[in-house]
Amino acid sequence: MRLKTFIADSLPQAMEQVRERLGDEAIILSTEDDPEGNGVRITAALNEELEEPGIFDGDDGLDAFNRLSEALEYHRVPVGLSDRLMTAAGNMDGGTPTMALASALDLELRFMPPPQGPTERPLLLLGPPGAGKTATAAKLAAQVRVRGKKATLITLDTGKAGGLAQVTAFTEALGAELREARDAESLKRAVSACPDNHFVVIDAIGASPFDGDAMRETADWLELSGAEGVLVLQGGGDPLESAEFAIAYAEAGAQRLIATKLDATRRLGGVLSAAHAADLTLMGLGTAPTIGGGLRPVNPVQLSKLILPEEAGDEPELTSPAVANGAGT
């Protein structure tokens, strides 16, 4: 709506001004004597569709629609989530497909960066065996250490062959402290022994999400340690399988998600559907085996750029994974 006030000596003169400036379509909203005594004052308005068209409207709308839906299909995003993202993107006013998808992702998923210092509650990393929990724990500790903050890594995984040697090597290299725990009770003691100024990350034993006993044990660890559950899940998995995994871990208490091995992954449907189905906050993407730089924060715009190829019709090259380390940061 365009609104304009006109002041003139007489009503017909004011009406003439309205017609001149706003045209015949304008309507008169109010008429009054000018309070300053300069004759008559008219407020008139014109209906204007100032709203920008949606990205699926207009000449380029179909291209944008196809480009987005093809990208989501390429990434094997499940139909339910894909529909929600397409609808949300279509409701955005104007902008580029990348920004519309970013807004849609922002609406459908939760994001937070990895911690940069001590957190209110320790983080407990859980997930299936081989997902990269220990390396992720080291990466999280490294991000804190490079900022000059202290870190403690507590491992529950002392039984695995070479397991303790691996975390010892990590913590020594990082200048972080290492503690061991064997069960929920000793974990609780280990957590309370950590000073407040330490970032505390707990590396749990990998467990199948469909093993009821193991999941109950996981829930106990979380409850007794007061930790926040972070699911560490390998990217590139089957989207529905990943969603079921995530839901099982969320039932045990996971609230966050770190997706790993994205340097060896091209399709992000598994990560998206896991985060969405279990309502997990996406906390980072593991993009390289190096402990120092291998965990990237992710926001909706970055994620949108990873999903949409640079130019319409561009197929990602066979040699490039979905996430190249360091790209887009």
């Binding site: 309507i27 909203l29 308005a45 209906n47």
Partner: peptide, 14 residues
Amino acid sequence: ERTYGALRKACESF
């Protein structure tokens, strides 16, 4: 009330 009248008219018309 005059102010309201102007807003009401815009909402009714547009």
